[in-house]
Design a protein around this nucleic acid. Sequence first.
DNA 1: CCCTCCTACCTAGGACCTCTAGGCTAACGC
DNA 2: GCGTTAGCCTAGAGGTCCTAGGTAGGAGGG
Lengths: 189, 189
Amino acid sequence: MVREKVTVERLVHAAADLADEVGFDQLTVSALARRLDVRDASLYSHVRNVQDLRMRLAALALTELADRVAEALAGRAGKDALVAFANAYRDYARRHPGRYAAAQIEIDPESPAGSAARRHAELTRAILRGYALTEPAQTDAVRFLHSTLHGYVSLERAGGFRHHPRTADDSWRLSLDALDAVLTTWPPD
Amino acid sequence: MVREKVTVERLVHAAADLADEVGFDQLTVSALARRLDVRDASLYSHVRNVQDLRMRLAALALTELADRVAEALAGRAGKDALVAFANAYRDYARRHPGRYAAAQIEIDPESPAGSAARRHAELTRAILRGYALTEPAQTDAVRFLHSTLHGYVSLERAGGFRHHPRTADDSWRLSLDALDAVLTTWPPD
DNA sequence: CCCTCCTACCTAGGACCTCTAGGCTAACGC
DNA sequence: GCGTTAGCCTAGAGGTCCTAGGTAGGAGGG
């Protein structure tokens, strides 16, 4: 009976699932080793250390997120594209909280995770093609958009919208309307 | 020569300073004990466990943040109040990254930290008095505002705006203009 | 077919962290 | 003086990160 061998790919996917279950900051080498049924020391021949593991997880998450966003954006433009992008983004964050948290860590642009991050950033910029913006207004608008989306899903995840009758879904729809309106008239007076 | 005795207040303030220096998630009981020149076990007569320490730090941070915001808001209204509020918020997050991170953890509404959180939430709502909103539009607007501010300072802190010539300060000013514009015409069509 | 190398795993162990149990001492109220 | 309390201590169990050094089994070359 041969146990399935550990490869870096299997290891990082297992880490991603574990992070989604217990939280990104609860992701430990020991817990991952337990799940893979090996000793913790054995994992250090696949990853250099915990930081390396987290970085690889970040690369995985950024790649997956960019894939979903690209799919959501296909064939759409204008507000339609904005809403599809935002929903894909929020959906990923809700379904995969551990992966989403991993995607937020500081990234070395030179690393593989850096190129996944750049791809994601370019997709975000693609949305703004429907709003006809030139630099530096485009950069400002991307930052505003990214801030609002990231802030919303972070606060929602942290439970900030729970102690109130108004549902998070309803406020989300209004927020997307607001984003469309503000991008349409960008730059603001 | 008697060493200054540890009280819960001194302990939590030292924890806050330590968290600002090394990061909220690097805040450990051991490191705090070293800084206070006592054994780590001694601190467990002041706080129940690490979670308790973090919660007390969150309460401190929320109280401080609410104080600064209240001061910034005094005597201002409309866009003036919005800008003062946002700048106080961002300034606190930049000066006190550890405390700011502490303020984001999930809070039990029944705890002391919960009342500090409520006070902060009420101050945020106070800004919207200048924009004449009624429920549920007011809740949607508060969530939108909070999302954008929190998202911006989080991404800025994580280094997301560093690899680009456009400064984070310039985009920030534009973002505040955009927030004012969107709140002025809330609810968005 | 045998030898060598490499890969994926192992044990052992040091350093650090969390937290409990149990005990000492000094100050304070009666 | 005496008990209580507050604040500190040591000892130690158990978890985590990581290094050092070693073993089994498969791949490839002679």
